[in-house]
Design a protein around this nucleic acid. Structure first.
Lengths: 225, 225
DNA sequence: TACATTTTTTAAGGTTAATTCAAGATAAAC
DNA sequence: GTTTATCTTGAATTAACCTTAAAAAATGTA
């Protein structure tokens, strides 16, 4: 993690830099608002610690300009002012957190961590993959290279069973259990139909995957070649 | 915006609920850790305000359990303790912000806004945009190119849920939660109606966006081509 | 307060898609 | 060649969804 610290108190900056380094956080230091904007424009920081009181172009001004430039780096403001209105103003201008000086370094580090964690884009998709196909079980989307299509719930559950155990013979009764539950009151022919449907889906996206039948036993998902 | 408040101080909760409502923030209230977990599991909140001191299952415990369950809702912790170590512990467990009691309601609201803003994709909280549509959630105005019209609160909240997660399947129960709250005593058909209303709004402004239904699951907002 | 208007909720019937079933066609095994 | 399992197809069934209308609630206005 790389962060930017903008504060005219050079001694404080250095001390902070050392404390953060010990925590594995790289900190770039600068001491004026103009410099700060210059660095922020690089758009390479996970977050920024910004002092409210700076000569010439002050912290609030830096914040405003940064947001106006479309820079969305998370910003934690530091200030000697503890007036509520100052905090409210800071937040209104686009600050993400606010800490009053003097502060404890441990609290600052904890807040930096929390802000960085919160700002990272979450990547949570139930995406199953095998060979050239990908199955998003949340969205019910089957894709293969640049083609994709939506499928039904049952089709998805059946294909999911195959992708989770590729190149493995899955007995018919196991498949029935996975898709329709252990005590389903379903005719065997229903599985036949769905095997057919899923095969059609696979060929529709021109996948190399095929469901091969093992007579008297069940089916197996394989990739050609 | 819909948030969850978990605090055993019932009077404080009510007062907060009223203050937040005045700011256009919907708050669901609950007064124990167990309840809190139950509500958080619904995954319908933009953020959560969590008291550190709760009988039986305390705040830190709720936080831990929520994160262990994979719930990533932003959490702001409240506490009467101002010891640094307590804050550090809270952040380490996955809290996103920390406020010491007694606090000023304006500061809490500012922090709630900051956290929600940081956690949601769009930079501007009032104006949501996707593809050719823009939704002003303050003024309840939906616009598309040079056309615009005013819509109702419920329509707006539903559309807001879609715009915040475009191209993503939103299950029916999630949508019900986002618009009507976790424990709404609402018929499913009401959601049907509002999907219909919002679709009519979208076509009325000639948007390229459509709400596609994923049978048996929910709906997804997509932009044509 | 009474009335009008808008918004929200419910209910009912029509429509469509997903699922299930069954029958004939096909292919493998003996 | 007969038997058996699987494939394919189409039709029946079921469940989800859409649309509409009207009741209920909330809001605004005289």
């Amino acid at each position: 993690m790389r962060i930017l610290i903008i504060d005219d108190d050079i001694a404080l900056c250095k001390a902070l830099g050392i404390s953060l380094a010990a925590e594995g956080i790289q900190a770039d230091l600068c001491h004026s608002g103009d410099e700060g904007i210059y660095y922020l424009k690089q758009d390479i920081y996970d977050m920024c610690v910004l002092d409210r009181m700076l000569p010439v172009c002050d912290g609030l001004c830096v914040l405003q300009e940064a947001r106006a430039l479309g820079i969305s780096t998370p910003i934690l403001m530091l200030t000697a002012l503890s007036r509520i209105q100052d905090k409210v103003d800071g937040f209104a201008q686009g600050a993400d957190d606010y800490l009053v000086k003097p502060f404890d370094t441990r609290e600052l580090i904890a807040r930096i961590r929390a802000l960085a964690r919160r700002s990272a884009q979450p990547v949570n998709e139930a995406l199953l993959q095998y060979a050239d196909i990908a199955l998003n079980t949340n969205q019910l989307i089957l894709s293969c290279k640049d083609e994709s299509l939506t499928i039904s719930i049952k089709e998805c559950e059946l294909l999911e069973a195959f992708i989770k155990s590729p190149n493995t013979l899955l007995p018919r009764n196991i498949l029935l259990g996975r898709v329709w539950g252990a005590d389903a009151t379903i005719e065997d022919s229903c599985l036949d139909s769905y095997i057919h449907f899923v095969r059609r889906r696979l060929s529709c996206v021109h996948s190399l995957c095929t469901i091969v039948t093992v007579r008297g036993m069940g089916y197996r998902l394989e990739a050609q070649r």
